[in-house]
Design a protein around this nucleic acid. Structure first.
Length: 170
DNA sequence: TTAGTGATATCC
DNA sequence: GATATCACTAAA
């Protein structure tokens, strides 16, 4: 079953763990379908979250985070890595889920590379796109939590919060 | 551990 | 226009 808009309208802290175990599907121009089960996500929530891009204020780039849920937010990091996010929650509050790893491809930039996702997907509706969507095939993995990574600059307080969701037992 | 990369934001 | 920053990866 393909996930609809209402799936993403919930709070990011509900959506992020829920996305773990779902299947990300990408249809290429030639009709090929790439599938990969999501193994790891991270939640970014609110302006007070120093790890969230929106913490620095509303800018043209982060504008999408404030917008409607179900929208894909693709961000070029370090000049060579595309990172893929999906906006969640009601409009007006900046929050989103970062796709951090899949079952096969461990690492956010490797995921987007495999999926051939780039900036042209920025702003697309993930529940209403011909090229990319997420399916629920009924698989329900056990989910463990961990502190987020790559946000050392955010401060100890935010580093300690376990808003990273990983499939598997532990 | 560091080098590399380029868009964005911030500071002249 | 110039510089600092960054949710990363690969190589060493």
């Amino acid at each position: 079953m393909r996930l609809g808009a209402e799936f993403f309208r919930r709070d990011v802290l509900e959506v992020a763990p829920d996305l773990v175990g779902k299947v990300l599907v990408r249809r290429l121009d030639d009709g090929t379908e790439l599938r990969e089960r999501i193994a790891e996500t991270e939640a970014y929530r609110g302006e007070e979250d120093k790890g969230c891009h929106a913490s620095k204020g509303r800018t043209p780039r982060t504008e999408l985070l404030y917008g409607k849920s179900g929208v894909i937010y693709v961000y070029l990091c370090y000049g060579m890595h595309w990172l893929m996010n999906v906006i969640t929650g009601e409009s007006g509050q900046p929050q989103g889920v970062l796709f951090r790893a899949g079952e096969i491809h461990d690492g956010p930039a490797k995921l987007t590379k495999f999926m051939q996702v780039d900036g042209s997907f920025n702003g697309a509706d993930i529940w209403n796109s011909e090229n990319i969507w997420i399916e629920d095939d009924g698989y329900r993995p056990e989910i463990k939590t961990a502190p987020r990574v790559g946000i050392d600059y955010a401060g100890d307080c935010w580093k300690a919060i376990e808003w990273r969701f990983i499939a598997g037992k532990e």
